[in-house]
């Protein structure tokens, strides 16, 4: 009970430190808007995002209640963006979860297991890293068919291996620190060292990496869907919008700008959120000296 209360207090300190910076506040706002849009769009969108209405085609923003206008077949662009945010959010969180679990597991195995095992893990990591993530996604899509799940798996695996390599070096660095030696000199066991000294010290770099993975996943999902390797064209998504609207870029440039802006803002938001989180989780970088 008391432990839960203490965790909660730490969480609040970190959260307020994130929001205190304008960049952090922007990142939090972007993430919040994305989550809100994804959740709301499950029950409500202003128009049916898939409904076609030729009489309502090529409308400009604010015409007849269409906030961002309509396209060639009368799709409400705002509704499409809202519905598409579900794909984006799932791609970001799914990939980051896979990357986190895979990255930490591989990193800790590589450092803490006996030398031959560790060496094999390191070699395997380097081998997989040499393989471009987008190519892996295309291969997976060719074998299993293009879908959001293939995109998430491909981004999660390739990013997870990258996380493993960076965190392996970081884990090795932390374990060679004097305070780990001091902790052992004070009688701490390996398990205690991992819990009390390794995980808290690796959390800041891990959080930054994962927010970058999220940004990368948003971009990869849009790219792959744009190229036709992602979810089917019937599912609204930001990459899919870019793909279908690019033919009319000279007639209605705004149609491309909305999904493009959505992707760009989301990627920027996750990147800034990551930076703010890193600063906030490290008491040395947190502003205000003694609380």
């Amino acid at each position: 009970m008391r432990r839960a209360a203490r965790r909660w207090r730490t969480l609040r300190t970190v959260a307020s430190a994130v929001v205190r910076r304008p960049t952090g506040a922007f990142g939090v706002a972007v993430a919040a808007v994305l989550v809100l849009a994804a959740v709301v769009s499950v029950w409500w969108t202003p128009f049916d995002p898939q409904a076609t209405d030729v009489r309502a085609a090529w409308l400009l923003p604010f015409q007849r209640g269409h906030l961002l206008g309509t396209d060639r077949v009368g799709h409400d662009q705002f509704s499409q963006l809202l519905a598409g945010s579900r794909e984006t959010l799932f791609a970001a969180t799914g990939s980051a979860s896979i990357a986190a679990v895979l990255g930490i597991a591989l990193g800790v195995t590589a450092v803490l297991s006996p030398r031959p095992v560790g060496a094999v893990v390191v070699q395997a990591i380097d081998l997989v890293i040499a393989f471009p993530g987008l190519l892996l996604a295309m291969v997976l899509a060719a074998v299993y068919g293009g879908s959001l799940a293939t995109v998430v798996a491909a981004v999660g695996i390739s990013a997870g291996v990258g996380v493993a390599r960076v965190s392996r070096a970081e884990i090795a660095r932390i374990l060679s620190q004097d305070y780990v030696l001091a902790a052992r000199a004070a009688g701490a066991s390996t398990g205690r060292i991992v819990r009390k000294h390794l995980l808290p010290n690796i959390a800041p770099t891990l959080i930054v990496q994962l927010s970058l993975v999220m940004a990368l996943a948003v971009l990869a999902e849009a790219t792959l869907t744009y190229l036709g390797y992602g979810s089917s064209p019937s599912t609204p998504s930001w990459g899919g919008l870019l793909h279908t609207q690019q033919d009319y870029i000279r007639v209605r440039p705004l149609l491309v700008i909305w999904p493009g802006l959505a992707v760009a803002l989301t990627v920027l938001g996750f990147n800034l959120l990551g930076d703010a989180l890193r600063d906030a989780t490290d008491p040395r970088l947190r502003s205000g000296v003694r609380s």
Binding site: A186, P200, N201
Partner: peptide
Amino acid sequence: MAMVFQEPLSALNPLM
């Protein structure tokens, strides 16, 4: 038995 280390900053966990 216990030990006092040379570098007081690096011998303390910065996050604890």
